[in-house]
Structure formats: C-alpha cells, structure tokens
C-alpha cells in the first residue's frame, strides 16, 4: 500500500468498504477456529458420556459436562494468545461473545435446576420427564445462539447451521430414546459446529 497515492472519492470509499469487509472476515476466521475447538470438545464429551452411561447404567456421568468448560475455556484462551497480530474487540465480537456467554449461563442454569429437581422429586417418572426435557431445551438454546451469531455476523453458513442444530436437534430429540441416547443429540450438535467452523474458515480465507 502506497502512502501518498492520490485517490478519487470512489477509491477512498472502496478502500474503507474493503477494510471493513476484511475486518468482518477476520472476526469470522477467528470464530471458525473456536467453532472447531468447541465442536470437537462437544463431540468427544457427548460420546464419552454416552458410552460411560450405556456401559454402567448411571446417569451421574452427566456431571462430566461441567468439566467441558474447564477444558474448553483455557484451551480457547491459549489458542487465542498464540496469535501474533492482535485486534481487540469491536461491537460485533462483543455481541458474539455476549450471545455465547448468555447461552452458557442459561444452559448451566437449566441443568442445575434439573439436577436439583431430580433430588427433590421422589417420583422417578417426574425425574425422567425433567431429565429428558433438558436435552431438548439445551439443543434449542444452542441452535438459537448459533443462529443469532450468524445474524450478527451476516453469515449464512452459521445461520443455517444454527437452524439445523436447533430445529434438526429438536426433531431428533422427539425420535431418540429417553436415556443415554439423548447424548447423541449433542454429538450431532458438535459435528455440525465443527463442520461450520471448517466451512466458515474456507469461506473467509
């Protein structure tokens, strides 16, 4: 880029537009990396819980979910710190972070209430009803968070992936079993998230 190149008004406006587009692409590339990390983690954790639950018959393995953020957040932070060129936050990245933080708070709250209820409620049918509805609620929240992120980033891949995860996940939820099979919903969400990351990265090379 030349420092003193004489520009016309339209060239100047084009330069500003290109810079803003590059900035948006940069945010998308950065998001793609995190989608891949969380996609792999979600797939691994859901499969591990599914297999442990299936082999032992204990639903307590669900507590392993709380270990996922303990692994994911430090890993994401470490990968973020490896970037040599640092762009700080802007409005879009703040909104995106806010959306996923909100999802995290809401899904953890739903899970905690469900655990508390299963201790209080003596009826096994009631406990099953709460436990199984939890997966449907979380998959919907997940799909919503992903779709809203796609809207904020004006990216059709993320928007559609959110719809596939939320609505597709809900459709699977009604057809899948009541117990450990429910974990496969999150395997599905993890795979969709990972593929979304790859596609968004390719799209914004």
């Amino acid at each position: 880029m030349e420092q003193n190149k004489e520009m016309t008004a339209s060239e100047s406006l084009q330069l500003i537009t290109e810079t803003l587009n590059n900035s948006r692409k940069d945010i998308l590339r950065s998001n793609a990396k995190y989608y891949m990390i969380w996609g792999v983690l979600l797939t691994c954790f859901s499969l591990a819980i599914y297999l442990l639950w299936k082999s032992t018959g204990h639903a307590y393995w669900n507590l392993l979910w709380f270990a996922m953020p303990l692994v994911g957040f430090p890993l994401a932070k470490w990968i973020g710190s490896k970037e040599d060129a640092v762009r700080s936050e802007n409005v879009i990245s703040r909104i995106t972070r806010g959306i996923w933080l909100t999802f995290c708070i809401f899904s953890c709250s739903v899970a905690l209430f469900s655990i508390l209820y299963s201790f209080i409620n003596t009826s096994p049918i009631g406990a099953i009803a709460v436990g199984t509805s939890l997966s449907g609620q979380i998959i919907l929240l997940f799909g919503m968070a992903e779709t809203i992120t796609g809207v904020a980033l004006k990216n059709w891949i993320i928007k559609n992936a959110g719809v596939v995860t939320g609505i597709g996940g809900l459709a699977l939820y009604y057809g899948i079993g009541l117990y450990e099979e429910q974990m496969l919903l999150f395997t599905f969400a993890g795979i969709v998230l990972f593929i979304t990351g790859i596609l968004v990265k390719r799209q914004n090379r």
Partner: peptide, 16 residues
C-alpha cells in the same frame, strides 16, 4: 486522503 493513513483509520474506527 492518503491510502495508507485512511486504511489505518478505517481499521481503528471499527475496533477498540
């Protein structure tokens, strides 16, 4: 109204 300075300002206008 200089290519490089405008590019720098365009980047900085969009981030903290």
């Amino acid at each position: 109204h200089s290519e490089l300075r405008l590019a720098v300002m365009s980047i900085l206008a969009g981030v903290d």
